[in-house]
């Protein structure tokens, strides 16, 4: 086993190659093969009729973030700053406040993500010790008219639902 060196043969010395037309016609056979096949049945073309036809988004997909909530609707985030610390692009800004619902001590009063800075690496999800932030919204296309609108806040993050069932989401692996 192990690697062997192999010299690549140089083409171009044979008569059919020098005659040009012979080889070009052979090549045309391939092109026309594609042409007829696509003419008869264009379902196999690599064309996606976006936006009518959406791309396949799987549970591993790192889409726009959302903040998860408990069953009663209260936010799971405890403002521990782990995601903010682990973010390589420094795009998360949290302000912590006192929590009065007896679940935990703190909650975020401000949780902004600058989506123009975000590089969608998923490090915030990896860092979260409470499963409070996920990137499972399936949102991959973000367009706004100005920069300010690309700063998403606590309400919007908490209001966006996940795109997958809990079972499917867990199957993506950790």
């Amino acid at each position: 086993m192990s690697a062997k060196v192999k010299v690549v043969k140089r083409k171009g010395d044979t008569l059919p190659e020098k005659l040009y037309l012979v080889e070009v016609l052979k090549g045309m056979k391939t092109s026309f093969g594609h042409f007829w096949r696509n003419l008869r049945d264009n379902s196999r073309l690599y064309v996606r009729h976006y936006p009518e036809q959406q791309p396949e988004i799987t549970p591993r997909w790192r889409g726009r973030h959302r903040l998860t909530t408990h069953e009663d609707g209260s936010i799971k985030c405890v403002a521990c700053f782990m995601c903010q610390t682990n973010c390589p692009s420094r795009c998360i800004m949290i302000e912590a406040g006192e929590r009065l619902d007896d679940r935990d001590e703190k909650l975020p009063v401000r949780f902004d993500i600058d989506l123009l800075e975000c590089i969608y690496c998923g490090y915030c999800v990896e860092a979260c010790p409470k499963d409070a932030i996920r990137m499972d919204t399936g949102i991959f296309s973000l367009v706004e008219h100005n920069r300010e609108k690309m700063l998403v806040g606590l309400d919007e993050l908490a209001a966006t639902p996940g795109a997958f069932t809990e079972d499917d989401y867990q199957k993506r692996g950790l």
Binding site: S2, A3, K4, V5, V8, R10
Partner: peptide, 27 residues
């Protein structure tokens, strides 16, 4: 490097290292 300083078990695989002759665009 896969041949000359193998890592990750590259020495266990059977493969060739293609080399050219002239160093032109074709190669």
């Amino acid at each position: 490097l896969r041949k000359d300083a193998p890592y990750y078990n590259y020495e266990a695989f059977d493969f060739n290292i293609p080399v050219g002759t002239n160093g032109d665009i074709y190669d």
